[in-house]
């Protein structure tokens, strides 16, 4: 079981590396080697570490541990075919981690990151519309049932395209360098992770690697259906590359624009779900 976790952390970090490499090549730069993010985590974990004097000490450390724990839970929910609702509850709880990271340090930059994270809470609304759509179609929220449904009826991607688009935007919002990543935008230094250095940052990066793995894999499982591991890996990389293209070619949006776009998407999906509820 622990082997799944360690595997997912490394693959997630590798995916981050591929993401950076792809963005660099699209922008005409050589870019770092794809294992750079793994080296990053190791590097951070070897750095001298302490807790800033201004920080709320317990919270400062607890948030890092919670971040890793939360995404480990998500991985196991996904692997055991548990409840989709639980998987996305975990995704929402990640929001708390973001707030906690920013608020706990006492740094103004962290605080700005946290406030932006509050504002971008709108990104969670498309998620529940997605869940509603999937529930209306498959009649179940257990991931194992959804996979069984897809094995019988073909991928949900074609049956529920708008829901897939909504989830795609949700996944996009959580990627590094994404147009929606206002909480870690560079004009506020590193946003909510500004004050988490050394081992804390290593732990966070590991958690974020896990997060990327879980989100991409969840998209594959939910919308493309069960497939062999190798094929799933290829699909994940392709999905990631499509996200990299968007990240590379679009500027960072202003916080209010991100909210507008996400609420707009959510509104469209809600209309879609209501229409489907009426027609079906």
């Amino acid at each position: 079981m622990i082997e799944y976790l360690i595997f997912a952390v490394f693959v997630g970090l590798l995916l981050h590396g591929i993401h950076r490499k792809a963005i660099a090549r699209i922008q005409g730069r050589p870019g770092p080697p794809i294992w750079q993010e793994i080296l990053h985590v190791l590097k951070f974990s070897f750095k001298e570490t302490w807790i800033p004097a201004t920080a709320s000490q317990t919270l400062f450390v607890a948030v890092v541990i919670i971040a890793i724990g939360v995404w480990s839970t998500a991985l196991f929910v996904l692997l055991t075919g548990g409840s989709l609702l639980l998987l996305f509850a975990v995704y929402m709880l990640h929001k708390i981690v973001e707030h906690g990271l920013g608020l706990s340090s006492g740094s103004p930059y962290g605080k700005f990151g946290a406030i932006r994270s509050v504002m971008s809470a709108a990104s969670e609304i498309p998620l529940f519309a997605t869940i509603a759509a999937i529930y209306l179609i498959t009649g179940s929220l257990m991931i194992s049932d959804i996979q069984a449904w897809q094995a019988a009826h073909g991928p949900l991607l074609f049956t529920a395209l708008p829901a897939a688009i909504a989830l795609y935007i949700v996944v996009l919002a959580k990627m590094h360098y994404s147009p929606f990543a206002v909480i870690e935008s560079k004009e506020i230094v590193s946003g909510n992770v500004t004050e988490h250095f050394g081992v804390w940052r290593a732990g966070l990066e590991a958690a974020f690697g896990l997060k990327t793995f879980v989100l991409l894999y969840a998209f594959i499982v939910l919308f493309l259906g069960p497939m062999p591991l190798l094929l799933a890996a290829v699909a994940m990389v392709l999905l990631l590359l499509s996200l990299s293209f968007i990240c590379a070619l679009s500027p960072m949006l202003s916080p209010f624009d991100t909210v507008t776009i996400q609420i707009g998407t959510a509104g469209l999906i809600v209309v879609y779900v209501l229409l489907m509820g009426v027609i079906v």
Partner: peptide, 12 residues
């Protein structure tokens, strides 16, 4: 956590 952790010292 709210019970046991001490608040941060905000800096502006």
């Amino acid at each position: 956590l709210a019970i046991i952790s001490r608040p941060e010292k905000p800096v502006d």
